[in-house]
Lab assay of single mutants.
Amino acid sequence: MEVRTIKVFTTVDNINLHTQVVDMSMTYGQQFGPTYLDGADVTKIKPHNSHEGKTFYVLPNDDTLRVEAFEYYHTTDPSFLGRYMSALNHTKKWKYPQVNGLTSIKWADNNCYLATALLTLQQIELKFNPPALQDAYYRARAGEAANFCALILAYCNKTVGELGDVRETMSYLFQHANLDSCKRVLNVVCKTCGQQQTTLKGVEAVMYMGTLSYEQFKKGVQIPCTCGKQATKYLVQQESPFVMMSAPPAQYELKHGTFTCASEYTGNYQCGHYKHITSKETLYCIDGALLTKSSEYKGPITDVFYKENSYTTTIK
Rank of each mutant, 00 (worst) to 15 (best):
C193V: 02
S181M: 12
R66Y: 08
F56P: 03
A247S: 05
I315D: 15
A262V: 02
N309G: 12
Y113F: 07
G39P: 06
P131T: 04
T232D: 02
V243K: 01
R139D: 10
A145L: 05
C285S: 07
T314F: 11
T64P: 09
T11R: 03
L114A: 01
I301N: 00
S213T: 02
N110T: 05
T278K: 02
D287M: 09
Q175D: 02
L65E: 08
W94Q: 05
A142L: 13
Q196L: 09
E239C: 11
G29W: 11
P34R: 14
F217C: 02
G272T: 00
K92W: 09
A177D: 03
T55H: 09
L121K: 02
E296L: 09
F56N: 04
D62V: 06
E253V: 15
P130M: 04
A154H: 00
Y252W: 10
S181H: 15
A247T: 03
D303C: 05
S25Q: 13
Y306C: 02
M209R: 08
T35L: 13
A115Q: 01
T159C: 13
L118A: 05
F9W: 10
A69I: 07
T5C: 14
Q197M: 12
C227V: 01
K183E: 06
E71K: 13
Y172H: 12
V160Y: 01
T5A: 12
I152M: 12
K233A: 13
T260Y: 10
E144S: 12
Y113D: 05
T314K: 14
F70T: 12
Y297D: 00
C190A: 01
N16M: 13
D41R: 07
I45W: 15
S310M: 13
Q175H: 12
S279E: 07
T313G: 08
I124L: 14
E2R: 11
D180N: 14
T169E: 03
G202T: 01
T282W: 03
I124Y: 07
H256V: 15
Y72R: 10
K191W: 01
C227D: 01
H273G: 05
C225N: 04
D62F: 04
F174P: 07
T211E: 14
R139S: 13
T282M: 11
T232I: 15
T312A: 09
L114F: 08
A205L: 04
K233S: 12
I223W: 08
P248I: 06
E2H: 05
A231F: 01
L17S: 09
Y284L: 13
T258V: 01
K95G: 09
Q222V: 08
Y155W: 05
P300N: 12
T313C: 14
T43H: 12
A142T: 14
N268E: 11
K219E: 11
P97T: 08
S240E: 01
K219V: 09
A132Y: 06
P60S: 08
G288M: 11
T198E: 12
L212E: 04
Y297R: 01
E281C: 12
M170L: 14
E71W: 02
D38G: 11
D38S: 11
Y269H: 12
A289V: 07
Y73F: 10
P131W: 09
D180H: 09
E215L: 06
T282E: 10
D165E: 05
S79G: 13
V67H: 12
T27K: 08
Y269K: 09
N147Q: 13
L118M: 07
D62G: 09
P131Y: 08
A146F: 04
V206F: 00
L212M: 06
Y137K: 03
T19Q: 10
M170Y: 03
V304K: 00
D303P: 02
S181W: 14
P249Q: 02
F70R: 11
P224G: 06
T266D: 11
F9C: 09
E296V: 13
Y234C: 07
E68I: 08
E2Y: 11
L153W: 09
L17K: 14
K191C: 10
D38L: 12
W107V: 00
Q175V: 00
A87Q: 12
G228Y: 01
D23V: 14
I315N: 15
F148D: 04
V67F: 14
E253S: 08
K191S: 14
K233R: 14
V166F: 04
V22I: 10
D180F: 05
P97I: 10
I286Y: 06
D77I: 02
E52H: 14
S279F: 04
T5Y: 12
F70L: 15
D23S: 14
Q175M: 04
F32Y: 10
L59T: 12
I45L: 13
G194C: 08
P78F: 06
A231K: 05
T116G: 07
V12M: 06
V189K: 13
G267A: 05
T120S: 12
D62P: 06
A146D: 00
Y269E: 14
Y214R: 04
P131F: 04
C193F: 00
A177K: 08
G39Q: 08
K46E: 13
V3D: 15
R66P: 05
Q237W: 05
T302P: 02
C156M: 03
T292C: 07
G53W: 12
S213H: 01
E68T: 07
A177T: 04
E125Q: 13
H48W: 14
L153V: 08
G210Y: 03
M207D: 04
R141S: 08
Q196F: 13
N178C: 11
G194E: 11
K92E: 07
V206W: 04
T10Y: 11
K293R: 10
P60G: 03
K255P: 08
T10F: 00
A69V: 10
S79C: 10
Q251L: 11
V22S: 09
G299Q: 01
S213Y: 00
Y36C: 02
E2L: 09
M85S: 00
Y138F: 13
V236L: 07
K229F: 09
T91P: 06
E68F: 02
K191R: 11
Y234E: 05
T266A: 01
A289S: 09
Q197L: 09
T64H: 10
M244C: 05
Y234D: 10
G161K: 00
N187P: 06
A117K: 03
L126G: 06
T198G: 00
E264D: 04
A231Y: 05
A117F: 06
C149L: 09
I315L: 15
R184N: 05
E253G: 00
C227T: 02
V203H: 10
L200Q: 13
A289T: 10
V243R: 02
H51Y: 05
V189N: 09
G33N: 01
L283S: 01
Y172F: 09
A108G: 05
R66Q: 13
Q196W: 10
L291M: 13
W107P: 06
Y172A: 14
S295V: 14
Y252H: 09
A150K: 02
K93G: 09
T116K: 08
G272S: 02
K280P: 03
G257C: 02
A289P: 05
R4T: 14
T260S: 06
C271A: 06
K95V: 15
T120M: 02
Q197S: 12
D63S: 15
G299Y: 02
K255N: 00
L235S: 02
S263E: 09
T278M: 14
D165I: 03
Y155Q: 00
D303G: 01
L153T: 04
A146L: 05
V206A: 00
T302D: 01
M24G: 10
E215P: 01
N187C: 15
Y138I: 15
R4S: 14
F9E: 03
P248G: 03
Y311G: 03
T64F: 09
A132F: 06
T292G: 04
A247G: 09
E308P: 08
A154N: 04
F305Y: 01
K316D: 15
R139I: 06
M1I: 10
K92Q: 10
N309Y: 10
L65H: 02
V236Q: 01
E125M: 00
K46Q: 12
G220Q: 03
L133T: 02
E281F: 02
N147W: 03
M207H: 02
P241W: 03
E2A: 12
H90V: 12
A177E: 09
D287L: 00
H256D: 04
D165P: 00
T5Q: 12
T266G: 04
I6S: 08
I301K: 01
V8M: 12
T103Y: 08
Q197V: 12
L200N: 04
C156T: 10
Y36R: 06
C227Q: 01
Q216H: 12
T260H: 01
V236K: 01
S240T: 05
L114V: 15
T199K: 03
P130T: 10
V8I: 13
M85L: 11
M170K: 03
Q122I: 11
F9P: 04
Q196C: 12
D109R: 09
S79Q: 14
N129Y: 05
N89V: 14
P248N: 03
L126M: 09
H273L: 02
V185Q: 01
H18T: 10
K44M: 10
L81N: 00
L17T: 12
F9V: 11
G164Q: 08
V58E: 08
